[in-house]
């Protein structure tokens, strides 16, 4: 990628809502504000989303079984909390996603679940 192209691309992402999956499985969602060569990313108005713990999964599976539903198709809410302004260090980033309105995406939508 050329330098100009790279910068322009990054600049086009500024203030867009971004989702970042990090090494410990958490997802951060916030407005993209800043980045550098090491891919350290600053997000504003960030929420943290955490996958349910093993214990919670088991409890939910047990509950589903009692209710007579199949635990295989179980959906669980991610636990979330508000963090505000955060820096995500580049070396912890596993995956990044850009949020777009479905109506504005011309191509077929990519996978929605990380």
């Amino acid at each position: 990628m050329e330098k100009d192209e790279g910068q322009e691309y990054l600049r086009s992402l500024l203030n867009k809502d971004i989702r970042i999956l990090i090494t410990d499985g958490r997802i951060f969602r916030g407005a993209f504000k800043c980045t550098d060569q090491h891919q350290n990313v600053v997000l504003a108005q960030t929420f943290e989303y955490r996958q349910p713990s093993t214990q919670q999964r088991e409890a939910a599976a047990a509950a589903a079984e009692v209710a007579g539903r199949s635990p295989a198709t179980l959906t669980m809410d991610l636990t979330s909390r508000y963090l505000g302004l955060v820096v995500v260090p580049g070396h912890h980033i596993i995956k990044m996603e850009l949020e777009q309105f479905a109506s504005q995406v011309r191509n077929a939508p990519a996978a929605t679940v990380i």
Partner: peptide
């Protein structure tokens, strides 16, 4: 439903 996340990694 209205939001899609595009992989940009």
């Amino acid at each position: 439903a209205g939001i899609v996340a595009v992989d940009i990694t």
